[in-house]
Design a binder for these strands. Structure first.
Lengths: 243, 243
DNA sequence: GCTGGAATTTGAGCCGGATCAATCGAGGCC
DNA sequence: GGCCTCGATTGATCCGGCTCAAATTCCAGC
C-alpha cells in the first residue's frame, strides 16, 4: 500500500491547492499526508461508500467522479451530490457515525482515504486542520442549503443552468476548461439530482442548444454563453451572491 | 451582562440535554458554560443574524423560535430553516466567516451566544467539544441533504406531512407535546420553506383535516394520526430511515 | 365589544413539467 | 465493420400545483 509514500504525499499532489490541505501550513500538510492512504483504482459503478455502514474514513476524489445516491422507500433513486477531484465525500457521516448514502464511481476513480480516528487525533494538535474541517463542513452545509432553496423555487431552466454553471466553476478551480467538458453522469442522474425527469433535462438542454447557449454532443458539452446561463440561474455572475 | 452567571450556566439549563453540551462531560460543560453569553429578549421580527455580516458567534435558541431567511435576486423570499429551542443557528457561516441569511425571531426570543474565537480556542483542549461540533455540522448537513431530496422529489402532501412530523419530533425531544402545538410561522413561511405557495399549504392542510389526520384552528394544530402523516412522508415511521 | 387590516381559506382556470410512447444515436463487443 | 443494447431525443397528452380572485377568519388596537 504505502510504497514510496513521499511521491504520493499531499505536498506535491496536483490537487493540493483545492483539496483538504489547501489552507494548511507546510508542517500541517506534512503531518496530514502521513495519515492519508491512497486507494486503488475503482471501475465505473463500484461503490466506495455503502449506506448503512460505519463511517470510518473520509474520502477525497483524486481523479474521476462519483455520485452520492440511494433509493427512496418508493424505489425511486435519488442523487444527493456529485463529487469531483479534490472534493471530500462522506461528511454527512459525522451526524451519527454512519453513512446514509452510497458513493458510486461514475467513471474509473482514484481516491484518497483518511481514517476518522487519525483525523480526530490530528485535530487535537493542528489548529489549521480544525479550522479547515469546520470550513469544509460549513461550506457543504451552505452549498446544500442554497441548492435546497434553488430546487424548490426555481424552474427547470434555472436549475439546469445553475447546475452547469456550478460544474463549470468547480472544473475551473482545478484548472480544467470551464467551458468545454464531459458530463460523466447520465441525463437520468442529472434529473434525479435536480428533481426533474430525464426527458425534461434533455428537452431543456435542447432549448439551451437552440438558443445558442451551449453545444451538446452526447456527453460532451461546450458552454457558448455562460453569461446567459448565469443570468437565469440564481447565483449572481459577478460580485457576491445574493442567496 | 454576566451577572450571576452560575444560575444561567449550561449545567442546570433546561435545554442542556438537547443543546450543544448534550454529549459533553461535566467538566467540559462547565468550561463551555463559561464562554456562553446570554442575550436579552428579542421581540417578534427582530433580526438576530444579518446576512452579509461577519460570523463572530454561534447562537442557540433558548425560548421562542426563528426562521433563517433571505431574498432571492428576483425579490422572492426564501426560508432555509426554522430554529427551535436548543437548536444552534448560524453554522453555515463557517463556510467563509460570513452569514448568508438573516435569522429572524418568529415570536419573542431568548437566546445564548458563543463567540467563535472562544469556541475555537476551547476546541483545542476539549475533545468532546470537537466531536460535538463535527456531529452538529454533520447532522445539519445530513438533514439539509435529506430535505433537499424531499423537496425535489415529493409532492405537496408528502412535503407538508414530513414538515409536521419533523416538527413533532423536534418538539418531543424537548419534552413538549408532539401532537398538540402552535405553528409559530405563517403559512407563507411554511410555503417558502417547502417550495410551495401559501394557497397549496392551506389547501393541503385542509385535506389533512378532512381526512381526519389533523385538527387545525388558526396556528394551533393537533396531530390526530401522526402514523398516517409519517406514512406519506419519506421518513420511515419506525426503524431506521431509508433515505 | 367593535373595527380595520392582515392572514387564511376557498374557488376557477391555466401551465410547466410529468407521463407514456416511439424513434434515434452512440459506444461496446464480437 | 456491423450488430446490439442502453442512453438520449422528440412528440402527445395529462395533471398537480400555481396564479388570479374573492370571501372569511383572526387578532390588535381602540
Amino acid at each position: 500500500m504505502g510504497t514510496k509514500n513521499t511521491e504520493l504525499s499531499c505536498g506535491n499532489c496536483a490537487l493540493s491547492r483545492i483539496c483538504l490541505p489547501a489552507n494548511l501550513s507546510a508542517r500541517e500538510t506534512r503531518i496530514l499526508a502521513g495519515a492519508v492512504e491512497r486507494g486503488r483504482e475503482l471501475c465505473t459503478g463500484a461503490r466506495l461508500i455503502r449506506a448503512g455502514t460505519r463511517m470510518d474514513a473520509l474520502y477525497v476524489v483524486r481523479s474521476g467522479s462519483a455520485k452520492s445516491c440511494g433509493v427512496l422507500k418508493d424505489g425511486e433513486e435519488y442523487v444527493r451530490a456529485f463529487s469531483l477531484p479534490g472534493e471530500v465525500a462522506g461528511l454527512e457521516g459525522f451526524a451519527n457515525g454512519q453513512h446514509t448514502s452510497d458513493l458510486v464511481a461514475l467513471e474509473p476513480l482514484r481516491y484518497c482515504r483518511i481514517a476518522i480516528g487519525r483525523l480526530e487525533r490530528m485535530m487535537e494538535t493542528l489548529p489549521g486542520l480544525r479550522r479547515e474541517m469546520l470550513r469544509l463542513l460549513g461550506q457543504s452545509l451552505e452549498d446544500t442549503q442554497r441548492m435546497r432553496i434553488e430546487v424548490s423555487m426555481v424552474d427547470a431552466r434555472g436549475r439546469l443552468a445553475s447546475f452547469l454553471v456550478d460544474l463549470s466553476r468547480r472544473l475551473e478551480r482545478r484548472n480544467l476548461s470551464p467551458t468545454h467538458f464531459r458530463l460523466s453522469m447520465s441525463r437520468r442522474d442529472i434529473a434525479r439530482h435536480l428533481g426533474l425527469t430525464l426527458e425534461t433535462v434533455s428537452r431543456t438542454l435542447g432549448a439551451f442548444r437552440h438558443a445558442g447557449w451551449v453545444e451538446v454532443k452526447a456527453r460532451h458539452i461546450k458552454l457558448l454563453r455562460p453569461d446567459a446561463l448565469s443570468g437565469i440561474s440564481l447565483q449572481n455572475s459577478g460580485s457576491r451572491a445574493l442567496l
